[in-house]
Simulated assay, not measured.
Amino acid sequence: MKKLIIATSLLLAAAMGCKKYEMPGNTPATNPILEKMVRGADVSWLTEMEAAGMKFYDTTGKQTDGMQLMKNVNMNAIRLRIWVNPSGGYNNLADVLAKAARAHALGMQLLIDFHYSDSWADPGQQTTPAAWSNQDITALQTSVYNHTHEVLTALKAKGIIPVWVQVGNETNNGMLWPLGKASEHMDNFALLINAGYKAVKEIDSHIKVIVHLSNGYDNGLYKWMFDGLTANKANFDIIGMSLYPATVEWQTPNQQCEANMRDMVSRYNKEIMLCEIGMPATSPVATNYFIRDLYTRIHNLPDGKGLGLFYWEPQAYNRWQNYLLGAFDNTGKPTFAIDAFR
């Protein structure tokens, strides 16, 4: 996600300005929709930011632990990415275990996001880990299974069972390229998903497995992918989506995303999770309404199939790693955007 979003962030920042929005739904203080929804954040950068000396504060200016701050703003779930052998160490097993333990101690639910790469995996890059680079599709299935099983076993040893696991991140064209590229080898991609699925269910059959694509407004992409995976007998429980409106005007993307979510429920009878969302940090009012409107649309999906959403790295501030779509101001405090979770 990060690579694609940064390229447009500067354009979005220039597009901000004072603009009036109609408030959707109930006010934050009386919104009953949130009660049973997943209210989450991906805070995978947290330990790296802390090591760099970044600190976090509540709206009164009181310094607060970053994970605790997510709990304090009424979030109930944390998403963490895991890489296979990252060069800098962050997002490796040890780092993920440390962050997961902090979330678990706060009573928060956990989503583990397997990238199956040594670095970022997204629609533009799904690079096979260096240690797996010469493997054929049979060996890659074993590597996916072993890596997934190892990570979840380590979590379970600490008494932590994730509620959800993503088998791949923003896999618009599969993962573990070239052998797992969906446009060329949809059958291989399904095999790789099933290898991860098998490992997850062996750890705990109650963990729900997510297949995650970006561009939640793009119904054509989702039909192509999930028709292909279904035809190739891929196993998964939840359809995951990302949604990052290309401009500060969020209304049309939200409408398109709702139409896509409803179509996915109708076609595949699967639950839906918004695994990543984001809007410019300089536009907190619009972002607040964007989130609240999404919650209404998710809540209204047929048969209770809408689960909730995760904001991607809301705690990123002061242009951390050139990312401009967080939900904190430049002093390390949450903005009005975060009030959408209260």
Score class of each variant (00 low, 15 high):
Lys3Asp: 14
Leu4Asp: 09
Ile5Leu: 15
Ile6Tyr: 01
Ala7His: 08
Ser9Val: 06
Leu10Phe: 08
Leu12Met: 14
Ala13Arg: 13
Ala13His: 11
Ala15His: 07
Ala15Cys: 05
Ala15Arg: 09
Cys18Leu: 13
Pro32Gln: 01
Ile33Leu: 15
Leu34His: 07
Leu34Met: 11
Ala41Cys: 05
Val43Ala: 11
Thr47Gly: 05
Gly53Ala: 11
Met54Trp: 13
Met54Ser: 14
Lys55Arg: 15
Lys55Ala: 13
Thr64Leu: 12
Thr64His: 10
Asp65Gln: 01
Gly66Thr: 02
Gln68Lys: 15
Leu69Tyr: 06
Lys71Cys: 02
Asn74Ala: 14
Asn74Gln: 13
Ile78Phe: 03
Leu80Cys: 06
Leu80Trp: 05
Leu80Glu: 02
Ile82Ser: 12
Pro86Met: 06
Pro86Ile: 03
Leu93Met: 14
Asp95Gly: 05
Val96Phe: 07
Val96Thr: 12
Ala101Val: 00
Arg102Trp: 00
His104Met: 04
Leu106His: 08
Gln109Asn: 14
Leu110Gly: 03
Ile112Asp: 04
Asp113Gln: 07
His115Arg: 10
His115Gly: 05
Asp122Lys: 05
Pro123Met: 01
Pro123His: 03
Gly124Ser: 13
Gln125Val: 14
Gln126Asn: 05
Thr128Ala: 08
Thr128Pro: 07
Ala131Leu: 15
Trp132Met: 03
Asn134Ser: 15
Gln141Asn: 08
Tyr145Asn: 09
Tyr145Leu: 08
His147Val: 08
Thr148Gly: 13
His149Thr: 06
Val151Glu: 09
Thr153Arg: 12
Thr153Phe: 12
Thr153His: 11
Thr153Leu: 10
Lys158Phe: 05
Gly159Ala: 05
Trp164Gln: 08
Trp164Gly: 00
Asn169Gln: 09
Asn169Asp: 11
Glu170Val: 01
Thr171Gln: 07
Thr171Ser: 15
Asn172Met: 03
Gly180Ser: 08
Ser183Gln: 07
Leu191Lys: 15
Leu191Tyr: 06
Leu192Phe: 13
Leu192Cys: 03
Ile193Ala: 00
Asn194Val: 05
Lys201Met: 10
Ile207Tyr: 07
Ile207Gln: 06
Lys208Cys: 08
Lys208Arg: 15
Ser214Phe: 02
Asp218Pro: 02
Asp218Gln: 03
Leu221Pro: 00
Lys223Asn: 12
Lys223Gly: 00
Met225Thr: 07
Gly228Asn: 00
Thr230His: 09
Ala234Ser: 11
Ala234Leu: 03
Asn235Tyr: 03
Phe236Gln: 01
Phe236Ser: 02
Ile238Glu: 02
Ile239Glu: 01
Gly240Gln: 01
Thr247Ala: 07
Val248Gly: 13
Glu249Gln: 14
Trp250Glu: 07
Gln251Val: 15
Thr252Arg: 13
Asn254Phe: 05
Ala259Tyr: 08
Asn260Phe: 05
Met264Phe: 01
Arg267Gly: 01
Asn269Met: 06
Lys270Cys: 06
Glu276Asp: 13
Met279His: 12
Pro280Gly: 08
Val285Lys: 14
Ala286Leu: 11
Thr287Val: 04
Thr287Glu: 13
Ile291Trp: 11
Asn300Leu: 08
Asp303Asn: 15
Lys305Gln: 10
Leu307Gly: 06
Leu309His: 05
Asn318Thr: 09
Arg319Asn: 15
Gln321Leu: 13
Leu325Thr: 10
Gly326Gln: 01
Ala327Tyr: 07
Phe328Ile: 08
Asn330Phe: 07
Thr331Phe: 09
Lys333Val: 02
Thr335Phe: 04
Ile338Trp: 00
